[in-house]
């Protein structure tokens, strides 16, 4: 891991709470003493993570674990409830307007659904060219050449600038989404399930493109996915999330060879692999608990095969278990 003096991105106790408001009916009921309180859901409950420049960090978790909310907070789409995001050492709250603008442009996001994330009424020229012109990165006169150059970089013919999104296939649309992100010269790209909607053969092309762009432009990626195979392929480090918390962080090879957290172990056992022969699936017991009513103690204990009395009472904290590795499990402390 590169030991850069100032990491590119630091998340410190990042938390997002969504509130379900009481509502009109609830307020009226409260007038009669119903005592209905707003319900809070902690979608992300205190995440600490450091991302060095040039690194590819994979974030893995099942639906509802808060991985997309983390992505949206970093990209500035969703506000922060508590904690801080520091970019090049400066917290987002302390930024000057110039720094804030630089941060907003430097962090770009690529979305899951290439059909929903492109405006169907805009030409590629405008989809890709609007932001760099608005931010003064290129002049209106140079816009066309700039967009053509970017399209060629992602492997699309430059002649496609005047086309509309519906004229493209899913893989091509995702390339346009990537072009749009690249247009404002970002340093960090947040990919939220960016290849999940693509066919395997197309997915491989787009994954290769991500790696080429990283080498060429020195990009840093936060790669969010539920697909362990994709994450294992592309990431330097992997973060495993469960119910709004990080349960394990490790360099990719170590995580896949020697997972520490029981949840990580179970996920790896369930990962479908390309091997012939009947597999005996030992399914994870039960289901993902609702974040509305997380279990007491360790959130994973109802499904954990090794849960002890302590796991039911006390929530474990993410603690270092080796160089560059951390895991949130009581078993590491001898339960």
């Amino acid at each position: 891991m590169s030991q850069a003096p100032t990491p590119l991105l630091e998340l410190d106790g990042l938390t997002k709470t969504f509130s379900k408001p009481v509502g009109v009916a609830g307020h009226i009921a409260n007038l009669f003493g119903a005592g209905i309180a707003p319900v809070d859901v902690r979608a992300v409950a205190g995440i600490d993570l450091t991302v060095a420049a040039g690194e590819v960090v994979g974030v893995v978790g099942e639906s509802g674990c808060g991985k997309s909310t983390v992505a949206r907070m970093i990209a500035g789409i969703t506000g922060i409830s508590a904690g801080s995001i520091r970019y090049r050492g400066v917290a987002t709250g302390d930024m000057t307007p110039a720094q804030r603008r630089d941060f907003a442009l430097s962090v770009q996001m690529i979305f899951q659904d290439p059909f929903a994330s492109l405006n169907p009424r805009m030409r590629v020229l405008d989809i890709v060219g609007e932001a760099p012109v608005a931010h003064g990165l290129v002049s209106r006169a140079d816009r066309r050449d700039y967009v053509v150059g970017l399209l060629q970089k992602v492997g699309l013919p430059g002649g496609y600038v005047d086309r509309y999104p519906h004229q493209f296939s899913g893989g091509q649309r995702q390339r346009i989404g990537i072009t749009r992100a690249l247009a404002v010269k970002p340093s960090l790209i947040v990919c939220d399930e960016a290849v999940a909607a693509l066919d395997v053969s197309i997915q491989a092309q787009v994954l290769n493109l991500f790696m080429d762009l990283r080498d060429e432009l020195g990009l840093t990626y936060l790669f969010i996915s539920h697909n362990l195979g994709v994450v294992e392929h592309i990431s330097d480090r992997v973060v495993i999330m469960y119910l709004g918390r990080v349960v394990e962080i490790a360099p990719t090879a170590e995580l896949f060879e020697a997972p520490n957290h029981p949840y990580t172990k179970l996920l790896l056992e369930l990962l479908p692999v390309l091997e012939a022969g009947e597999r005996a699936y030992e399914p994870i017991k039960g289901e993902l608990p609702s974040p509305l009513a997380p279990p007491p103690g360790c959130a994973f204990h109802p499904r954990c095969p090794a849960a002890t009395e302590r796991c039911r009472r006390e929530a474990p904290v993410l603690a270092p278990i080796g160089p560059g590795r951390a895991s949130a499990c009581h078993l590491n402390a001898g339960a």
Partner: peptide
């Protein structure tokens, strides 16, 4: 063959995948 080579996995880590060129 192309499909199997396109699947990202442990063996492909750090290497480029060999996708099928073009599209469906």
């Amino acid at each position: 063959r192309g499909l199997i080579a396109s699947v990202p996995s442990r063996a492909t880590r750090g290497h480029r995948l060999k996708p099928i060129r073009g599209m469906t």
